[in-house]
Structures are given as structure tokens and as C-alpha cells.
Design a binder for these strands. Structure first.
Length: 378
DNA sequence: GATCCAATAT
DNA sequence: AATATTGGAT
């Protein structure tokens, strides 16, 4: 009698303790979730710990106090995908030195409902949205590397290099309707673009124009960003951590598109960044009320609300404007500081200084740079 | 999207 | 000094 009673007490005590742990852990996980891109493993660990505790409870008790986790936080819907997303990465990461990509699902397929992991800084809808504003392509396909390349891209980390014939004679590429520019008179024989072996000319080479061809003051042939090209672009961005941290050269290298130049990528990136920035709420007023207030957390700019409340994902959905998914400051989107430890650090020393400038020192970021520039000008 | 310009790093 | 890369502006 007494024995059973004391057992019961013990057990209750234990259960209570577990519950406390679980709650604490879930709280922790909510925080980590904001930085899921930077701390995938951390997230996983915590999640597992939670599961373990839950299991323990359910194992030792019959009543399911936590059987249905009342941790309101869409836990199941959120953590599953996250792990799914990162686990494979962890596995394959040992194999290659290259940054591997999470499988990139393209837009013409229909599955994009499942995971709202937040690292998905490029939303398909948004992409099409901003692309639309730029240009309309009629033929999404008919790009050379459609099937073989795509399958490869999804299964392996290797991206098959493609040769991009310049659109002019490309015939397979949707024509780039350009009637705006004045110098259209010249015709470029595009075979010149190092077909086959040449790889890319470096920017200097290209810019030098001193070469054999006689295009001196001529404007370059307009680069047409087909869907395929843009897909690769996005893919590269994804791997590099978002449009705000990726640099043209890195992107170009990851895209593996023959003949693509840094300048072209840069231009595209610039535009992309413009479109993915917060469009000032579409309503040109409310600079104080609506503008998000950012705080610095460990060197990271984080929207204040999100930081404190940690339901970034939810808020993202509600505050989206046209460029919704992007605008909201996903943790993953922000210059990530924790990149230092990872892919970027090995990249080149440039990151060490530039990275610091851009990332860890908010006060010194773009505005300061421009200021420097301007001050120097004046 | 191509270029020009300035800053910065090597 | 020359070159490479980058970001911002045109």
C-alpha cells in the first residue's frame, strides 16, 4: 500500500520533471528555429531530446498528458520538414568539398506546400512575380539541359555545365525582345563565346575587348535569362545562403554555365536583390509604424518581433506584400555570420574582411559603405 | 540587362 | 601600378 503510494509519487515527480524539460526544450527549439539554417544540427538535437522525453513519459505512464503535444507551436508541421531537409545534407557533406544543394524543386511542379521551413527564401510565387515584372518568356522549356541536367541536379551534387549560346542565334532560347536600345545594328557572331573548352574569360579579358573581334564600343549582346538559367541562379543562391550573401562570382561558378560572365550574374543579382528587398510596404507611407524594427542578436539583424516572439514563420505569411516570402526577414536570409564557420570561411580571405564588414557589424553595412563612398566623392 | 563608377582586396 | 571583384547607380 505504502509502497505503491510512494511509487506513484515518485512517478508523478518524474513525469512532472519530464514535462518541465519538454517545455523548456520546446521553448528552446522555438528560438533555435529562427536560426534553423545556421543551426540545423542544434535543432535536430533539441528535437530529439524532446522526443526522447516524450517517449519516456509515454513509456512510463498510461495517461497521455503529452501524447498530443499541446505545445501549440505547429511543432509537427515544422520540425519534420526541417529535419528532412537537413539530414541528407549532413550525410552527404562528408563526401564532397563542394557545397551540396538541397534538392531544388522547380516551379513548374506542383509540390510546394509541404514545408514552410523558412529557409526557403525564394518562394516560387514570388519568383514568378518578380520575373514577370521583368520580362515574359513564352517558352519555359526548350532549354537544352532540361531533363538530364535536372535529374542530375536533384540526385547528385553535380551540376552539369551547360553551354549557353547567346540568345541571338540560340534559336532554342526565347528571344529577348529588346527594341529599346539604340545600338542594335551590329550583329554578333556568337560562336565566339569560347565554345567548348575555353571556360569563361575573366571579366578583365572580356571587358578588354581588345581581342580579335571588332566590337569596340559595341554594347554586349543582351543576355537572356531563361527559366533554366534563372533556375540555376536560384539554385546557386540557395547554396550560397541567399541573395544578400552570395556574390556574383560564386554564383557564376555554381551555375556552371559556359559563357556566363560575372557581370551578367551581377546584373541579374542586383535586380534580384532589388526585387527581393522589402518593397516598403507598397504603401509609401508608414515608415515608422510599419517598418520593422531590427535588433542585433549576436551580430545578426533580426526583426524585433520575431526575435522576441520567435514565430517568424507565421508573421511572414501575414506580412507579405507582393514579394512576400522574401521580404520578411527570414533568419536564413540574413547575412549569416555563422557562415564564418562554414562554407564561406574556406572560400577565400575576401570573406574574412568583407564578411565582417557586411555581416557582423551592422552599423558598418551598406549605408556606411555608401557613406564612405560619397564622402570620398565630396 | 549592360555599363559606368567607386571602393576594396590582392 | 595593375588587376579582380563587388555593389550601386544609370
Amino acid at each position: 500500500m505504502i509502497k505503491s503510494l510512494s511509487n506513484m509519487m515518485k512517478y508523478n515527480e518524474k513525469r512532472e520533471k519530464c514535462c518541465e524539460y519538454i517545455e523548456a526544450l520546446e521553448e528552446e527549439r522555438r528560438k533555435i528555429n529562427v536560426f534553423q539554417r545556421e543551426l540545423p544540427l542544434c535543432l535536430e538535437l533539441v528535437t530529439r531530446a524532446i522526443e526522447a522525453y516524450k517517449k519516456e513519459i509515454s513509456g512510463t505512464t498510461t495517461d497521455t498528458l503529452y501524447g498530443q503535444p499541446e505545445c501549440s507551436e505547429q511543432t509537427t508541421g515544422e520540425c519534420g520538414p526541417v529535419l528532412d531537409l537537413f539530414l541528407p545534407v549532413k550525410q552527404s557533406s562528408a563526401s564532397t568539398d563542394e557545397e551540396e544543394e538541397e534538392v531544388y524543386e522547380d516551379d513548374d511542379v506542383e509540390h510546394h506546400e509541404s514545408h514552410d521551413t523558412g529557409i526557403d527564401f525564394v518562394d516560387k510565387n514570388m519568383k514568378s512575380e518578380w520575373l514577370k515584372s521583368v520580362q515574359l518568356w513564352n517558352q519555359p522549356e526548350a532549354v537544352p539541359v532540361s531533363k538530364s541536367e535536372r535529374s542530375q541536379q536533384e540526385t547528385q551534387t553535380v551540376v552539369e555545365p551547360i553551354k549557353e549560346n547567346d540568345n541571338g542565334a540560340g534559336s532554342h532560347q526565347p528571344p529577348c525582345y529588346e527594341m529599346s536600345n539604340e545600338k542594335n545594328d551590329y550583329i554578333i557572331s556568337l560562336a565566339t563565346t569560347s565554345s567548348g573548352s575555353g571556360r569563361q574569360k575573366t571579366e578583365a579579358e572580356r571587358g578588354g575587348s581588345g581581342g580579335s573581334s571588332s566590337r569596340r564600343g559595341q554594347r554586349k549582346q543582351r543576355r537572356c535569362w531563361s527559366h533554366e538559367l534563372h533556375r540555376r541562379f536560384l539554385n546557386a543562391l540557395k547554396q550560397l545562403g541567399g541573395p544578400h550573401v552570395a556574390t556574383p562570382k560564386q554564383i557564376r561558378e555554381l551555375m556552371k554555365v559556359d559563357g556566363l560572365t560575372n557581370d551578367e550574374v551581377k546584373s541579374h543579382l542586383q535586380k534580384y536583390r532589388l526585387h527581393t528587398r522589402r518593397p516598403s510596404q507598397t504603401i509609401p507611407n508608414n515608415r515608422d509604424s510599419q517598418t520593422q524594427h531590427f535588433v542585433v542578436v549576436g551580430g545578426i539583424w533580426v526583426p524585433q518581433a520575431n526575435h522576441s516572439k520567435a514565430n517568424a514563420v507565421a508573421s511572414r505569411k501575414t506580412t507579405t506584400g507582393i514579394y512576400g516570402p522574401m521580404v520578411s526577414p527570414l533568419p536564413s536570409e540574413w547575412p549569416s555570420h555563422s557562415n564564418f564557420g562554414r562554407e564561406i570561411s574556406e572560400e577565400r580571405s575576401r570573406c574574412s574582411n568583407k564578411g565582417i564588414v557586411r555581416c557582423s557589424s551592422p552599423a558598418m553595412s551598406s549605408s556606411t559603405r555608401t557613406k564612405t563612398k560619397n564622402s570620398k566623392l565630396s
